[in-house]
Nucleic acid binder design. Sequence first.
DNA 1: CTGTTAGCGCATTCAC
DNA 2: GTGAATGCGCTAACAG
Lengths: 340, 340
Amino acid sequence: MSEAPVRPPTILDVAREAGVSKSTVSRVLDERLPTSHSPTAQRVREVAQRLGYRRDRFASALRRQQTRTVGVLVPRLTDTVMAMTFERIAAACARRDQFAIVATTDDDPATEREAIERLLDQRVDGLVLTTARLGDDVTSGLRERGVPVVLALRSDGTTPSAAGDDELGGYLATRHLVDLGHRRIALVAGPAYASSALGRRAGFRRALAEAGVEDVDHLVHESAFSMESGEEVARRVLAGTDRPTAVFAVNDNTAIGVLAAAQALGLSVPDDLSVVGYNDVPVSARLPQPLTTVRVPFDQIASAALELLDEARAQAPARDVTVAPTLIPRSTSGPVPTQV
Amino acid sequence: MSEAPVRPPTILDVAREAGVSKSTVSRVLDERLPTSHSPTAQRVREVAQRLGYRRDRFASALRRQQTRTVGVLVPRLTDTVMAMTFERIAAACARRDQFAIVATTDDDPATEREAIERLLDQRVDGLVLTTARLGDDVTSGLRERGVPVVLALRSDGTTPSAAGDDELGGYLATRHLVDLGHRRIALVAGPAYASSALGRRAGFRRALAEAGVEDVDHLVHESAFSMESGEEVARRVLAGTDRPTAVFAVNDNTAIGVLAAAQALGLSVPDDLSVVGYNDVPVSARLPQPLTTVRVPFDQIASAALELLDEARAQAPARDVTVAPTLIPRSTSGPVPTQV
DNA sequence: CTGTTAGCGCATTCAC
DNA sequence: GTGAATGCGCTAACAG
């Protein structure tokens, strides 16, 4: 009564059933070749379909020396931005008959090295890294080993990258606050090692400069990307003298931390304090105070990353793709409070 | 000046360098065999290490007919519970020299079937499903095809499963509210197709029965698992007559939706309304009102799922593993408001 | 367009 | 213990 260990049909089964050689089957089913419409080809496809034939990717990869698999490296999947990014990359891979696998670094360089080796052990055809830090380069070592690499969400000035236009996003967020009358706007700036954070910072400066605010250094507060960090920075900034009337946070996580700090300090949002985040993660729209934020087209970034990976494989010169974000005004931003 | 396309060393390179045959190398490096300490074995290992030899998983899998890869199916990774679960499964896989790959279903049966086929195309050695629905069985079809399958987070009464003790968790959450004096406690109950939701519902009933509340049917409100659903249900329930003094929500997502509804209706938490969630996702601790919730040991669930998968491969009889959750009291739960 | 042949890198016979 | 030979399932080089 044990189950039949039904071995899936091989190319040879299809060949026999269709009365051709296995080479013919292999060629007919080769997705890289132009589709033949000869009677033989049609019969082979029909038989393959009927037998439920699926190519063994392992045997195929062994021979082709490529796996149609892309490795994606993220700090952690519990960061919704990273989960979204990976999901979109996986979907884009599915559309091109590739498969995306993921590994996490937990923001730790040693773990990152291990994670990369684990991905390479899976013989991925290329890597998409979301973990780039300015001044640190894992990518050069990888390229020396002949591994195609691109960056997503961040750039490093060297490796091909697909990212949002962070300068524009930072400008839009800040400009929104400026338009509402705010001038004393604090920036929870994120870490200096991330190009994304620096870009948003530059946009912040541009918007304030346009509004005639030049002395902005004291408004910029470095932070991590976490909720904890946002709360901690906000507690400090909001408790000080000359309290800002608005905060632009480098991402939704830190913005949520800012909201928590505001609540703890008894500040009402947006009456006492306006807050703008970045990324538009799903929870942002569903907070007790729906968060004003900047939406990033993650699916465009995902598709672009895969195209850049193709180019990298073809030894094409490196280029960067940048896609424009959109401001999503919600209820955490409002007019500047009238002075008392 | 093009880069050297350095082919990674094969078992043959190691064999030559160590002066033995490739069979010997293969055996020495076979992790399933007991480690030999003969001089030859030590030399082979030393050479392999020195050359940076890594076994080609594709060639190996082709021969062994097993890939040391586990497929994980989740509804979506942007649901932090699912992201946590997958992360822990991936970590547990890493500890046992396996690799976890993931595919998403978006809660859609057709997408689910495709996702399963995509995972099977990757020749996974087994599947971990987090998407089980009572009364619907994907798993029987898979077992007929000889694919080892286990469930995580949910159970279906048939397939081996690793999950939290949802009845206990539901009891702990409700008991906490009962202890604070609440009796009119609404349950945002989740969907009836999920065993997890039903378990929490049962625990809810037990705690209320203990408190002498028997007529609970009108307190139970079915929902989805999303923030949207939680908000929608809460808007209805909190607007009605005989407003409950507390809400136990089937998960943190719906609890966040409840908080949003409470805010919109001008109810203060926990003064007018207590709210308890489930899962303790990271954002819960960082909400403007840190959420009282139930913590689930996801890493134990992950490890157990992989053990069950081993057992399934060995044709062992199906069993379920259940791990105990913990109540995490925070600031959304407080004493029942005094009647006015 | 088709079939024959060889081999990707490894694990497993089988003989020693 | 060790080595020679075979083949996992597929693709590619070659000849027709």
